[in-house]
Computed example of a mutant assay.
Amino acid sequence: MQLSTPATGERIAYGTDSLQFGVLRLPEGKGPFPVVVLIHGGCWLAQYNYSYMNHASAALTKAGFATWNMEFRRVGNPGGGWPGTFLDVAQGVDFVRELAKRYPVNAKEVVLMGHSAGGHLALWAASRKSLPRHSPLYTRNPLKSKGVVSLAGIPDLKAYALAPGSCNQAVPQLLAGMPDQVPDRYAQASTVGVLPMRLPVKLVQGVKDPIVPVSQAQTLAQHSSHRNYLVKTVLLPNAGHFDLVAPTSPVWPTIEQAVKDLLVNP
């Protein structure tokens, strides 16, 4: 039996921890609706949560997409960091299959959208099929997505960890070490060089972003230059870091179009 969901969204647990939940919003109509999974940023740290993505979630729902705005354990939460943050994201993304059993959503029409550190996690979630079985991050049968919209994402954790900046300093906290101390963890957590071929990816980046440099998107795009990669960098000249998740921002139509390109006009 499929249930209706209030326009404000319904909080649904995907695990047993208090932080393992998401907010599901459904557009008007019967469905089944394509799904945008939203993964928030905040430097992977506990002091930043899912709530700032609610406006983007509501705007995408108004545009006709079901949205699953996920929360997960982060650095500073019990069980967060390595490997808990990654395992929560994997579990939350895969939970879309369970949502499809109870709500009018299509688990075969899913786009992952993440902002900043969440952009990294969205790219990682779409790349985790390549993880070896012995990896602490390995999960069976990952949900297939139609693509990824990475908003100021951080795919190259090694380069980011070695650069100055307060958010940069969170990477060693996430992985419990610098690149030379835990190289295997950086290899398993970064997405440069392991992004699946033929997976449509939109790397949306504000040129005036003071937190995540354009080089992050450019590095991933350069490593994905083979003709079988479907990676596109979208540079927004006048945009900063948070413009990309603000529906009132002049660049929001570009963000919405990126989703439509993957779910409506593949």
Rank of each mutant, 00 (worst) to 15 (best):
P183K: 05
V192Y: 06
D184A: 11
A63E: 13
N238G: 11
H120T: 01
L262W: 09
E10H: 06
L143F: 00
S249V: 08
P172Y: 12
Q188P: 02
L235N: 05
P253C: 03
H134T: 14
M113W: 05
V264F: 10
C167T: 05
Y14K: 04
A239D: 01
V214N: 04
V75N: 00
G193Q: 07
V231R: 10
P200M: 06
L162G: 04
Q257K: 14
M197D: 10
P172E: 02
Y138W: 14
A59H: 11
L174A: 00
R128C: 09
Y138D: 05
T248D: 14
A46M: 10
A176T: 13
H120W: 03
T85V: 09
R11H: 05
I154K: 00
Y160C: 03
H55N: 15
Y103L: 12
A63W: 05
R128W: 08
L123N: 07
V93M: 01
S215H: 08
M70V: 13
A152L: 09
N228L: 14
V251Y: 05
Q2N: 08
Q216C: 02
Q181L: 10
Q188K: 11
V149Y: 02
S127C: 12
P250M: 14
G31C: 09
P104F: 06
P136K: 09
G81M: 03
L87I: 13
P172V: 12
P142W: 11
A170V: 02
V89A: 08
G177V: 10
H55F: 12
A152H: 07
Q2W: 06
Q181P: 00
S57N: 12
N228W: 10
K260C: 03
Y160H: 07
G29L: 07
R128D: 10
D184G: 15
P237H: 12
L151E: 06
V148K: 03
R74S: 04
V194H: 11
S224H: 13
P27K: 07
D156P: 03
L38D: 05
S150E: 01
K146P: 00
P142F: 11
A239Q: 05
A63F: 03
M113H: 01
N238L: 12
R140C: 12
V201Q: 09
V212H: 09
L112C: 03
L143N: 00
V149F: 01
E256I: 01
D17W: 04
Q91E: 10
N54W: 04
S166P: 10
T5I: 13
E28V: 13
N106V: 07
G15Y: 05
P196N: 14
F95G: 00
T191V: 15
C43V: 09
P83E: 06
K144W: 09
G147M: 09
S190R: 06
P136D: 03
N168D: 06
V259R: 01
L131V: 13
T16V: 08
D88S: 10
L174N: 02
R73T: 04
Q91G: 12
V192E: 00
P132M: 08
P253E: 02
H115V: 09
V96G: 02
N69L: 06
A7T: 15
S150M: 07
L262P: 01
V264S: 15
V111D: 09
L87S: 06
N238R: 12
H134V: 09
D184H: 11
G80Q: 04
M1C: 11
L262H: 03
T139N: 08
A66H: 02
N54L: 14
S116F: 00
T5Y: 00
A58H: 11
P183A: 05
V148G: 07
G81D: 02
P266T: 08
Q257H: 13
